[in-house]
Design a protein around this nucleic acid. Structure first.
Lengths: 195, 195
DNA sequence: TCCTTGGTGTAATGGTCGTTACGGTTGCGA
DNA sequence: TCGCAACCGTAACGACCATTACACCAAGGA
């Protein structure tokens, strides 16, 4: 087995620990045990704990990008694409994995993890939203000049403060019905505001 | 000096540590040192660390309530009240104190702190928003049936995901110009959506 | 005035965790 | 087949922290 595959296994094991036991119990020892890897390998390959989590963030962003692309693939009209995108985005942003990565970033005083989450997440998500919003504009469904502002408004309407409420343990991950409804409401409100 | 005053001093010292050194360094020892109090007193009065932080959350919510009430006091027309409320709310929700309390809740696996933040915060904020929105409805400025949904929409437009981005260290606390502009935009958008 | 109550400051306890060290094993190239 | 490089499992180290224990002190009531 090559190093890349082994790294993927280790990162999968880390996700497993993170999702099963939460961030507080996601220690280097627990991850090594779950991955049947030695501490030495973890430190040789990732440097330190922040390095390992940075790799988790990057890999998660890649997966998010892929899943979002798949969600809007084949959707010809932009309204349909937006209504596929919203619920999927909520699912990924509010899942156990993403929330625990955010908890890790909250606990990281250096701010490195927070920067990684923001940058990777933005790179994975904003271009897709931009593509869909642009198509909606071309269709005359929306009207706006500032793409960044429009994308930010959409995220604000869709996600709001759900992430922070989830991170502090106040709410559970929303079910599919809620995600669908919120996705529709966000598109509806966006159309009103940018109509 | 009575116990109540001494407790207020201790809680002020805890806020000082929290705002100066961040949540990671806000240990019981550091708080005791800053307050010139003994560990024994801290544990006798608050039970444990979570108990102390629960007290901090409750006291902060009281202060937030007072400051918000002062911000909208004397504002006759509801639009003016809303435009006073928004920036003040952003200032309080995104200040170093509230953000570090949220970090504490994110690190607390029991979820007690998160529950306290959500409940105390909601009690402090929602009635005020409801009062103002109700006045706006009476003026014909807004039209809605579900008060909770309207208040939630307002918060979503105003705050969005600023809290989580702040908690993970991705952004600094926004300056007054930003808070003012965002407050105006939230009122404008709310009027369009609930017009 | 004396003693009790309730505080302070500091030391000690017990546990956790990130990180390092190391002996034993394995698989692969020469 | 031999040798070595990389990896595993585990132990050890050093630091930090919540919590407890304790010796000392100050104030207020009998």
């Amino acid at each position: 087995m090559g190093k890349v595959e082994r790294q993927a296994e280790i990162e999968d094991a880390a996700y497993r620990v993170l999702e099963r036991d939460g961030y507080a119990k996601a220690t280097m020892a627990a991850i090594a045990r779950e991955a049947k890897a030695s501490h030495e390998t973890l430190y040789n390959w990732y440097g330190d704990k922040v390095g390992l989590f940075r790799a988790l963030v990057a890999r998660n962003a890649e997966e998010v990008r892929g899943l979002l692309e798949a969600a809007i693939a084949g959707e010809a009209d932009p309204k349909g694409a937006l209504e596929q995108l919203g619920p999927k985005l909520l699912e990924l942003l509010l899942g156990e994995r993403a929330i625990n990565l955010n908890r890790a970033a909250a606990a990281d005083a250096s701010g490195e993890l927070g920067a990684a989450i923001a940058e990777n997440g933005r790179e994975a998500v904003v271009p897709l939203i931009a593509t869909v919003l642009d198509a909606a504009r071309a269709d005359g469904l929306l009207a706006f000049d500032d793409m960044d502002a429009a994308a930010e408004l959409y995220v604000r309407l869709l996600v709001g403060d759900l992430q922070i409420r989830r991170v502090i343990g106040r709410i559970e991950g929303p079910d599919e019905a809620f995600r669908e409804e919120r996705g529709r409401a966000a598109v509806r409100d966006l159309a009103v505001l940018l109509g």
